[in-house]
């Protein structure tokens, strides 16, 4: 009897110890930082890490890559010792310019994105988009004549890439490169790779609404990404599992103005040279952050039928279209009703 009691006591003690241990074993803590100085938007990293020190390593990678690509893709400012898009635009029509590997690889991607999107996402649209950026600042649309003139200098075949000497030659002196339509997604993908290589096992990046997630949270649940309700009542239209994926949303509710009753925003259709108002947002969910961003920009300007046809040619690529009237359509992989919050 004595032995049984002792055994019982031992078991209970073990149980007590275990219960204490289990309370303190979830040692991974959430860390998050938001930066406001890059790409004219915000950039948030959220990580579950064992220590502040671990997080700082990853946060430093995040910040330094943001800063590097912010400089490389900047079209307004030049930086000492950096050949960036601003340099290339200034030197347009004046011969080949040697660029660093990072910028060259980005430009290779922009050509691929142009092909992927049938020309709807173009890095060579800068002469047109700069008119619209000014228009948003002035709250007055550009004249059709100015747009027509600018559109003469948007032929992407004028951007010559020499991958042996890694140089760029823009043959049209009035062409302007602009990474706004696809830069953020590309940078998100680069940062994801760097974080994974640095041993970061779970993270969520939010680059101005482009969500990229990797791994699982410590409790084993996946990362969810949401799509904003266009009505703006604060409820999310959809919540999707985005672990290992990027969810990129192009929406007309950012950076817009109304003029004589018409809404103008920053996503310009290269075919019409005007922003389209078919949708309030188009979201793309796929494994490549770069493709997600390029596709969401392109699909925003395409008809639903054309967009659906394009999406169906791509593997592991889902699209959610939220129309201006609030109705929602999606590719087959998204179950709208079940995901509705």
């Amino acid at each position: 009897m004595k032995k049984i009691c002792r055994a019982g006591a031992a078991v209970l003690l073990c149980a007590v110890c275990l219960s204490i241990c289990s309370c303190s074993s979830g040692t991974k803590k959430k860390y998050t930082t938001t930066y406001f100085d890059y790409f004219d938007t915000f950039a948030t990293i959220t990580v579950y890490a064992n220590s502040q020190k671990d997080f700082e390593v990853w946060d430093n990678i995040f910040k330094s890559e943001l800063e590097k690509y912010h400089q490389l893709l900047d079209i307004y400012n030049e930086y000492e010792g950096v050949v960036n898009l601003c340099t290339l635009n200034k030197d347009a029509g004046q011969g080949a310019v040697r660029v660093g590997d990072e910028l060259f690889d980005f430009l290779i991607f922009t050509k691929e994105a142009y092909t992927l999107t049938g020309g709807y996402t173009s890095v060579a649209l800068g002469s047109v988009t700069s008119l619209w950026k000014q228009a948003i600042a002035d709250k007055t649309p550009p004249t059709p004549e100015a747009l027509e003139e600018a559109a003469k200098h948007t032929d992407i075949s004028s951007v010559l890439l020499d991958d042996i000497v890694r140089s760029v030659y823009i043959t049209d002196k009035d062409m302007r490169l602009d990474a706004g339509a696809l830069g953020k997604g590309y940078v998100a993908e680069v940062i994801c790779e760097r974080l994974v290589n640095a041993g970061c096992e779970n993270f969520l990046l939010d680059l101005g609404g482009n969500l990229s997630a990797f791994g699982e949270k410590p409790d084993g649940t996946v990362w969810y990404g949401g799509i904003q309700d266009p009505d703006g009542d604060g409820e999310l239209s959809l919540s999707l599992n985005i672990s290992g994926l990027t969810l990129s949303t192009s929406g007309s509710y950012n950076r817009n103005f109304s003029f004589h009753g018409l809404i103008y925003h920053h996503i310009i259709n290269p075919q019409t040279l005007y922003p389209e108002n078919t949708y309030s947002s188009v979201s793309v969910l796929c494994p490549s952050g770069a493709n997600a961003d390029a596709l969401s920009t392109a699909l925003f300007s395409m008809s639903f039928e054309d967009g659906m046809a394009l999406a169906n040619t791509l593997e592991r690529t889902e699209v959610i279209w939220i129309f201006a009237d609030g109705s929602i359509k999606s590719t087959d992989g998204i179950e709208l009703d079940q995901n509705k919050n």
């Binding site: 938007t41 939010d206 101005g208 990362w223 949401g226």
Partner: peptide, 19 residues
């Protein structure tokens, strides 16, 4: 832009941002 208002409630993984 009121993006922060549209975002809705903050959660452990959803940071509400006003740029």
């Amino acid at each position: 832009d009121k993006v922060c208002v549209r975002t809705g409630a903050a959660t452990e993984i959803r940071t509400v941002v006003c740029l």
